Simulated scan of single mutants.
Amino acid sequence: MTFRTLLRRDGPVLGYGFAFTFGSSVGQTFFISLFIPGIAVAVSMSETRLAAFYGVATVASAMALPWFGRLIDRADIARYGLMTGAALAVGCWLMAAAINPWMVLAAMFVLRLAGQGLMSHVGLTGVARYFDRDRGKALSLTGLGHAAGEGVLPILMVTAIAVLGWRMTYGVAGAVVGLALVPLATWLILNNPVFRRAKGAEGASGVRQPNPLLRSGAFWAHLPLLLLSPLTVTALIFHQGLIAQSKGLELTVFAAAFAAFALVQIPTSLIVGPVVDRIGSRGPLLLHLAPLAVGAGLLATFKGAWAVWAFLALMGVTNAAGAILRTAIVAEWVAPARMGEARSFLTALMVLSTAIGPALYGVLMEAGVSVSGLLWLASASTLAALAPGVIYGLAVRER
């Protein structure tokens, strides 16, 4: 089935998923970071201390995510989505009203849990469990919401902050998501009981079962492949200033090159989805770190601005492919009735990896590892992450 046919047949469902992945931007690192200078001044905190608060909030949200995320398996997704949108709006309004560090910490926790965690969870889990066929294509279209947010919102928010101030801008963002985007998306699927139905409600025994991923050998063998991309991408983006300095480049070179990071994710998503439908997720998962490895190696070797553009473009390919594959392969490992529980557990681990990455790379730099050394480490670690999955595949094939 072509993308056009899929959109014509299931446009409302795909629009719902896209709206939630796009709306998740409000709780993503790239969005929140735009407001950090204004927040730091408003509550008399250094940006270093704010970064520490952000790390604490991210870890806390990752710990809470499996509990909240599994509820989607027994809830009407329309109601669950509305509650998620409302929580994200509250987080935005709390941040807009913050007058002390503890209000900032609370707001960051809500934004990370409801935004990066649950908004994406609603869109991707709902679409993944609804589509048996053409799941890869459906996830490709849904995941474009992330690329759209990364491509459109930074310049829009910077402009709005300059005109309205950071508090008003965050308040308006909360109103747009909670009072407009999510209700409109919900309207699209109101008359679709199959999509809305809680898959886990059927045959519920009342006995709490272990998370299905915990008993999956395939999951543990492929876990390094699933987590290395978010860890490395977040770490390298977080330390982009030091990377630019080591290359003798202005930070504006990285800022401009982020256009490549966002733009390449669109064709990548549209390519990876059909490939998953044709051959499954495991093969593409084994290969999806290769662009990141090549990009990090190029930036470690060369100093020109073109190397930054190439690095971010190749990193964008890995980022887009990984976003699809992390959901698609869980759908292959787990029954639809427990998709939310399984995917929220993996997402929590992913969020933890994004908190660990910048700190780990920072410790290595303080220990004397050069920026080029870190980039070569990022490149080489992709091979290390690949090994358990390859060994597992060979062992299964020989049985």
Rank of each mutant, 00 (worst) to 15 (best):
F109H: 11
F311Q: 03
F18C: 04
Q240C: 07
V308Y: 14
R326Y: 00
C92Y: 12
A218V: 03
T84Q: 04
S46Y: 12
R278Q: 06
G273M: 07
L188H: 04
I36F: 15
R196F: 15
L6E: 05
L7Q: 06
I266W: 13
I77S: 10
V308H: 10
V294A: 15
A201E: 15
F345G: 00
A89C: 15
S269T: 10
I32Y: 09
F131R: 06
T234V: 12
D73V: 11
L292D: 08
P291H: 04
G85K: 04
I39V: 13
T21H: 11
A321H: 13
G171D: 00
V177D: 00
V182H: 10
L386S: 11
G357T: 04
T29K: 08
A359V: 13
A348L: 06
I237D: 01
G393S: 15
G69Y: 06
R167W: 09
T5V: 08
F131M: 03
H121R: 08
A310Y: 14
N319Y: 15
A323F: 13
V104D: 09
I391H: 14
A260Q: 05
V233I: 07
A331Q: 06
L118N: 07
L394P: 03
M63G: 07
V390Y: 13
M168G: 11
G27F: 08
A138V: 01
R282K: 11
S379T: 08
W166S: 02
G91E: 09
A313W: 08
L214H: 14
W102H: 07
S24H: 05
S140I: 04
V163R: 08
I161N: 00
G69M: 09
V26S: 09
I77R: 07
L383G: 11
A255V: 12
T2N: 13
P193D: 14
S372M: 04
E366D: 15
Q28V: 08
A320L: 09
I77Y: 01
Q265F: 07
M365F: 13
D277T: 02
I271S: 10
L188S: 12
T301L: 14
M119I: 01
V56F: 14
S281E: 06
G357M: 08
F311G: 05
Q28G: 00
G11Q: 05
V275P: 11
L352E: 00
S25Y: 06
A305G: 11
L179H: 04
V43S: 08
S281K: 10
S25N: 09
M63K: 03
D134K: 05
L364C: 03
G55C: 12
V253S: 03
R9I: 09
S61E: 10
G297K: 08
V152A: 13
R215H: 12
L184A: 02
L228A: 11
V308I: 15
T232D: 06
G15F: 14
L139I: 00
R399S: 14
A162C: 03
I77H: 02
L251C: 00
A387F: 13
T327M: 10
P101D: 07
A87D: 01
S269F: 13
S216V: 04
G15K: 03
A355D: 02
Y170R: 02
A335D: 06
F195I: 02
Q240K: 10
G362P: 08
M339S: 10
M119E: 01
L360D: 00
I36W: 07
